[in-house]
Design a protein around this nucleic acid. Sequence first.
DNA 1: GTGAAAGCGCTAACAT
DNA 2: ATGTTAGCGCTTTCAC
Lengths: 325, 325
Amino acid sequence: MAAEAGVSKSLVSLALRGDAGVSEATGARILAAAERLGYRSNTLARGLVQGRTMILGVLLTDLANPYHTEVVAGVEEAADTGGFTVLMAHGRRDRARLAHQLDALLRLNVDGVVVVSSWVEPDALADAARRAPVVMVGRPERFTGGVDTVTNDDRAGAEAAVRHLAELGHERIAHLSGSRSPASRTRREGYGEAMGALGLDRRVAVREIGDDPRGGERAAEALLAARPTAVFAVNDLAALAVLDRAHAEGIAVPEELSVVGYDNTALADTVRPRLTSVDQPRLVMGGLAVEMVVERLSGRTEDRHEVLTPSLVIRASTARPATEG
Amino acid sequence: MAAEAGVSKSLVSLALRGDAGVSEATGARILAAAERLGYRSNTLARGLVQGRTMILGVLLTDLANPYHTEVVAGVEEAADTGGFTVLMAHGRRDRARLAHQLDALLRLNVDGVVVVSSWVEPDALADAARRAPVVMVGRPERFTGGVDTVTNDDRAGAEAAVRHLAELGHERIAHLSGSRSPASRTRREGYGEAMGALGLDRRVAVREIGDDPRGGERAAEALLAARPTAVFAVNDLAALAVLDRAHAEGIAVPEELSVVGYDNTALADTVRPRLTSVDQPRLVMGGLAVEMVVERLSGRTEDRHEVLTPSLVIRASTARPATEG
DNA sequence: GTGAAAGCGCTAACAT
DNA sequence: ATGTTAGCGCTTTCAC
């Protein structure tokens, strides 16, 4: 390449990055030669010498989860304006693989890692944070040692869901809970507290989805056996299981049963009836994560934990309870 | 690191990769030191000197498309057994961004790129193929100049769908077609030919989903206005639009309308009624793509084009047509 | 305005 | 069995 333009490689480097101190003629000649050869600088070599790659790694548990991918959209948007390239690594719901993928990103000298996964071991995160800025999105725990976090207020979200149902006149409001993830636990607590505050403590009915793949289906069936007039589900997928089960049992939604989901994923706007769901500001969350990485790169050393407020999106799956005959 | 173990860096390199020619004592000492320091070799440096990174790039148009992500699962599985790490770049349905992401992967010296996107410009692909093995998945065009392809037989899939509906007794079988992508066009041709072979030429009714975001909805509405007894949709998402529209118009599926989708994504097993759909062997396709990259790395120079046979998965959205009163 | 030289963290070939 | 040297493709001083 340097030969093609008849100059030294230092000049090539300068010219290609638009440095001022290159004469116009030479610059043009170099650009022309680069074009002719289809030359592109090598990220490996550049990263090695600069110590920065301008790559942001995103670690995902589950590609099929729209909540996750929508956070990624936020990351990508913000990364763009910062001139970063986003590369994703995927853990396929497997802790060992997740750890391995995180390691792969770090060995690549990514400038930061955004983790969108509740499955990564805290130890692995702390380790990673020693090598690059790490931001955890969507997991309501505080990590020590350099791991920043962006979450939504799961408790407030759960309370908003319950309040909405109570305002419609529901009293037998059941909860379909998830696995033992922190977010799931917090939503469940929020549900319990809201029910208590409304004086509906004795009405509380909770079922948990286990790790079993058909857990949602089974838990939904068990929950409906208690004949609630409304269900608050830990997420949209769980809400879908409730809708499906209600359909199978001939229970009309929302006439005989109201259902509220969480996350407000694309699913909520796809199922019939359209699902009332608690929305997390996913794009904003992804953007904040990038901002935090950039701050770290600029020298911030204290941890930052941002908690955003979710909002309820009301659709067609909730209504006043049927007046009992 | 070399200092910590009191040996030269060559020995560290050898020991960490388990080379035989390192004495057991030294090896142990090096491993211990590495453990103590949390040392991990640097992919940038290693890739630079070796000319191989053991990274496979996957270029995606659309993270939200389950067909795409399921192909990725196949890629990841095969990559695993080959010792490759999979990194994904995302184009967000934007041609310019797609080209940029492809470039980013190549600059990283990935050992190969699997493209799961109908949107990448052929020129960009041919260019890329000059720099690394490139395999295009799911796009029924042949590219010249080193781009391998893995596709399913869209024509056969469309024919299977139409045949299934005809065997149930349907004659007014409409088709909801997609944008001007090659896959969409081929499915449409397959539909037309199958209808012809069955002597139903005069019954053909086709509507096309434009680029408009609400195009599916509108096209479905227009299609149903022709009062078909069955619809073959270009993909599961389009089929969902038909189901939704049918629901809105009070048309019972499958009693009054049969619907067949394509791709057999998770969606097909989620919607109500469960969707009859043409299945593409996505995992196998992803695996084949990796195999093709490996072959190229081992020296293959002729292009390879693999076409897999799709299979119809019959669920609850298709049935005999109502006998007309 | 341009080139020469050093070095990023590794591996590979060649000593010893 | 271990150390030394060169060099991967770039950027970055520093001279000229």
